[in-house]
Amino acid sequence: MGFISVLGMARRLVKERVSPGDAVVDATCGNGVDTQFLAELVGPRGAVYAFDIQEAALERTRSRIEAAIGGTYGAGAPDAGGLHEADIRPLRLVHASHADMDKHVAEAHRGSVAAVMFNLGYLPGADQAVITEPASTLAALEAALRLLRPGGILTAVLYPGHPGGLEEAEAVAAWASSLPQPLGQAMLYRLIQKAEAPYLAAVEKKA
């Protein structure tokens, strides 16, 4: 039968903690898979922020959401936000580093975000030299913790198998393991017999 996949585990942890109307963040939207998942969880009363430094990722995410809901994206600019005649209205695509996410999240949602999802590495089908990096990722994780509400969840899928991925994965794992327990509880989910297999780091914020 096998174990649940790393991506499946990340989604399970998020789904258990997110309700309709919540605010959520996709820190690395890529092809938009996690953005769509989050948008479906929070529904039309929720808020979804999706970040990426690559314009191609924002375009792919926009196309995926439009195809899923049959809507037309609003004002055209990636940072403008809004879906017309759609079930998922409060989607905001932001062309910015995930390290700066707290600068783009509305004041009303700071400290009340239910989930932040990271899927690190590179954009499939794009330039594999453009990857997430330890310094900006660690800054983004700290920003995510500030945005989360108590009981909120942070998930980060790590890819040690590509150039630069091992260093980033180890930095994230070290960051998670060093978190003070009163602030949050951290876990790793991985296949320990496959050193290069993707794995999950997750943090549930306590306070």
Rank of each mutant, 00 (worst) to 15 (best):
A23G: 13
A47S: 14
E107N: 08
Q181H: 09
E55S: 03
E66A: 14
T132E: 01
Y189F: 15
P198E: 01
L191H: 01
I88F: 13
S178G: 14
S5R: 13
L148I: 09
P90M: 08
V25N: 13
P182G: 04
F37N: 10
G121F: 04
E142D: 15
H109C: 13
S19C: 11
D34A: 01
A207F: 00
T137H: 04
G76E: 14
G46Y: 02
E196L: 06
M101P: 03
E142F: 02
V25A: 12
G71Y: 07
D100T: 14
C29W: 07
R12D: 08
L200D: 03
D52K: 00
E40K: 12
T132W: 01
L138E: 06
D22A: 14
P198W: 04
S19V: 05
G30K: 00
G76P: 02
S177W: 06
L91W: 07
L200G: 02
A108V: 13
P150G: 07
I53L: 06
D52S: 01
V42E: 09
G121V: 13
R92Q: 14
A96F: 03
S19H: 07
Q54W: 02
P90E: 13
L41R: 14
D87V: 11
E196Q: 14
D87H: 12
S5L: 10
A99G: 15
A75K: 05
D79E: 15
A171W: 08
A27L: 13
H104A: 08
A115M: 11
V157W: 00
F3P: 00
G165Y: 04
A108D: 12
A77T: 06
G164N: 09
A129T: 05
L154H: 12
A10T: 06
A57Q: 01
A140G: 15
A67G: 14
Q54D: 05
L188I: 12
K103S: 14
K103L: 15
I192E: 04
L41T: 09
E168V: 05
